[in-house]
Computed example of a mutant assay.
Amino acid sequence: MSTLTPPRRAQTSDGVVKGRALARWSVWMPVAFVVVYFLVSFVSLYVAFPLLGLQEGDLFLFAHSAAGWVVAVVGWLLLAVAPVTGLVLGVRARRLGAGTTAVAGIVFNAAVTLLLAYLVFDEIRMAYIPSFTLLFLR
C-alpha cells in the first residue's frame, strides 16, 4: 500500500455502497417500464394510430406495411429500455457486493423482459398467423 492507493477496506466499502444504490435503481426499473408502457400506449393511440389508419384495439402490425413495422419496433425498443437497464444495473450491483436487493432486481427485470418478449411474439402471431395458437390455449 502506498500513499496514492487507499486501503482495501475503503475500496470494498465504497463498492458495496455503490452496489446497493445500483440495486435500488434496478428494483425501480419495472415501475419505469409500467410508466413507459402507458406513455407509449397513449402516444400510439392518439398519434400513430390515426397516421396508420388503425382503430382502437388494433396492433401496429395490422397495417401490414413498413410504417407499421417501424412504429412497432420503435415501441418495442422503448419498452425494452427499462427492463434491460434494470438487468444491467442488477448484475453490476451484484458484482459490487449488493445482496438480495440486487437479486430481486435481476429477477423482476428478467420477468418483465420475458413478458415483453412474449408480447412481441404474440403481436407478430396475431398479425400474420392468427390461426396459430399454443397447444394449451386451444
Rank of each mutant, 00 (worst) to 15 (best):
L59R: 13
L59D: 10
V36S: 09
W28G: 14
E56Q: 12
V43H: 03
G57L: 06
F49Q: 08
F33P: 00
E56T: 10
L39N: 09
W28S: 11
Q55N: 07
V47M: 01
S26A: 15
V43F: 10
V47L: 11
V35C: 09
G53E: 00
M29H: 07
G53S: 04
L39D: 08
L39V: 14
D58A: 15
V31W: 10
S44P: 04
W25L: 15
Y46N: 13
A63N: 05
F62K: 11
L54D: 02
G57A: 05
G53D: 05
F62H: 15
Q55F: 07
L61N: 08
S44N: 15
L51K: 13
M29D: 07
A67L: 14
G53M: 01
A48Y: 13
F60I: 00
G57M: 08
A48Q: 15
W69I: 08
V40I: 10
W25K: 11
F42H: 11
L59S: 09
Q55H: 11
V31L: 15
W25T: 10
W69P: 06
F38R: 07
L52V: 09
G53C: 01
V36R: 02
A66W: 08
L61Q: 07
M29A: 14
L54Q: 04
F62D: 15
S44C: 02
F60T: 04
S65H: 01
S44K: 06
A63D: 14
H64Q: 14
S44Q: 13
S41I: 00
